[in-house]
Design a binder for these strands. Structure first.
Length: 440
RNA sequence: GACCCCUUCGUCUAGCGGUUAGGACACAUCCCUUUCACGGAUGCGACACGAGUUCAAUUCUCGUAGGGGUCGCCA
């Protein structure tokens, strides 16, 4: 039997980390076994669903690289993939229940499913066998008076129709799974294999909701400067530990290692710091061109412009080990792109305290101006020569040059900055710094 | 209230009867270093509690406490 899994979000809001990880695990199971990953939009609640939310969820899925084999935009043999377009099918299944005498009407017309009221055991890959005693709950409503159907009903019908073999979903569904099995039984269908995964909690242990930090994929990750691979990797580590030496694993490795049986059964708290650590790891491995590609929207958003991509790529690449999020990049590289960068006040104060700094800078500038070629090595040699002539260490000159060239007291190597901006700008920036910041 | 799931360093976790209880993130210190980082080293730091089973429990069983979830004409 081929493996067919599905991710079935309800478009009531943005893609949430919990949902993203659910989708992720389903995707991993499908990819590992060469199965099919279905995306089904559960939009039966017209009052709460919006087209924007549906589009947002698809966008988030694509960003994370969770491609689906059947679903919106790609189609498939079991469509349509929006529940709002499957009413005829639901009516037909409802008729089956009606013929079997398993439904009855409420006074107002809503329809209820008559529970079997027998003990029902859920065979769960994560939680083991969980048996629910014959229920004393009221029979559940499956069709509203307006004729639309309720989640439990459509969810089961679609899982049957779409031949879903495994259902990996949040543990919040475990308590209702017996109702689904009761429905599968009523239809004479075999229930899929279940795997209820633990929930992702806030750092304080409370349930993570849409408003919480780190909850929305688009807002907290896409726009916050995360790389899809890093988020993908981090989310996997929440509730599952691959049998591997490192926690940093590629999609291919994660796919090969995936084992639904090994998913934990206890909830996990979200840790933004660790997510950022993963991001920093992935950021550093990017080639200059790839890094620039990811950084571009963040750079332009902060007003930086350039015409030379190679130079821009080299600039961001030079600070790749200093940031953990793409959003931090602009403040680290802005001076590569403009001549009117600000001089940080506290650095100015510090450097002004020593009057001799101005002459030191002048000496360095004169020496650099004489450089025949312009490489990191030649810049280094020029600074060293200037320092030697004045009997000071090169280390005394570097902070001054860094300040003159960037307005800051931290950043990539001074020689790297000088080399990248070129000789002309190096000299003019030193003049500007001397005139605007270091003059008495 | 009823039912269900869960419980190892601050966090994510390894462990599947006998371990100096291991790793990662975070934090601290040191080293490296023209800055900031990176990297390296070291340190800090946990088996919720109580019974039982056993020669031996973090590991098995039960109970207690705590956390989470479900009980909708939401999904």
């Amino acid at each position: 039997m081929s493996i067919r899994v599905r991710f079935a979000p309800s478009p009531t809001g943005d893609l949430h980390v919990g949902g993203a990880r659910t989708a992720l695990f389903n995707w991993l199971l499908a990819r590992k076994h060469g199965g099919t990953f279905v995306l089904r939009v559960e939009d039966t609640d017209g009052a709460r669903n919006t087209a924007e939310a549906a589009a947002g969820i698809l966008k988030g899925m694509r960003w994370l690289g969770l491609d689906w084999d059947e679903g919106p935009d790609v189609g498939g043999d079991c469509g349509p993939y929006f529940q709002s377009q499957r009413k005829d099918l639901y009516d037909a299944y409802f008729k089956k229940l009606e013929d079997a005498g398993r439904v009855y009407a409420e006074p107002d017309g809503a329809m209820r499913f008559k529970f079997s009221r027998t003990a029902i055991t859920v065979h769960d890959l994560v939680c083991g066998d969980v048996t629910f005693a014959p229920t004393e709950e009221p029979d559940m409503t499956i069709r509203r008076l307006d004729g639309s159907y309720i989640f439990h009903f459509v969810n089961v019908v679609d899982d049957i129709e779409m031949r879903i073999s495994h259902v990996i979903r949040g543990e919040d569904h475990l308590s209702n799974t017996w109702k689904h099995i009761d429905l599968f039984n009523a239809f004479g269908a075999t229930a899929p294999t279940y795997a209820h995964i633990p929930l992702i909690l806030n750092p304080d242990g409370t349930k993570m909701s849409k408003r919480d930090e780190g909850s929305a994929i688009e807002h907290s990750y896409m726009h916050a400067g995360f790389l899809p691979d890093a988020v993908f990797n981090y989310l996997c580590m929440l509730g599952w530990t691959p049998k591997a030496e490192s926690e940093k694993l590629s999609r291919a490795e994660l796919t090969a290692l995936f084992d639904a049986d090994a998913i934990h059964s206890s909830n996990a708290k979200f840790d933004l710091k660790k997510a950022q650590w993963f991001n920093a790891q992935y950021l550093r491995e990017l080639s200059p061109a790839d890094l620039l590609q990811h950084a571009r929207p963040f750079l332009t958003a902060s007003g930086l412009q350039w015409t030379d991509d190679a130079m821009a790529a080299a600039a961001v690449h030079s600070v790749r080990e200093k940031v953990s999020l793409l959003t931090e990049l602009p403040e680290w590289v802005h001076y590569f792109f403009r001549e009117d960068f600000p001089f940080e006040a506290d650095v100015v104060t510090k450097l002004k305290a020593k009057p001799e700094n101005a002459s030191l800078l002048k000496a360095a500038s004169d020496q650099l101006a004489q450089a025949a070629e312009w490489t990191e090595q030649s810049v280094h040699d020029a600074v060293e020569a200037a320092a030697k002539a004045l009997s000071v260490k090169p280390g005394a000159m570097m902070p001054l040059l860094r300040f003159a060239l960037s307005g800051q007291s931290r950043g990539p190597g001074v020689t790297t900055i000088a080399h990248l901006i070129g000789k002309e700008k190096t000299i003019s920036r030193i003049q500007r710094a001397t005139a605007e910041a270091l003059c008495a």
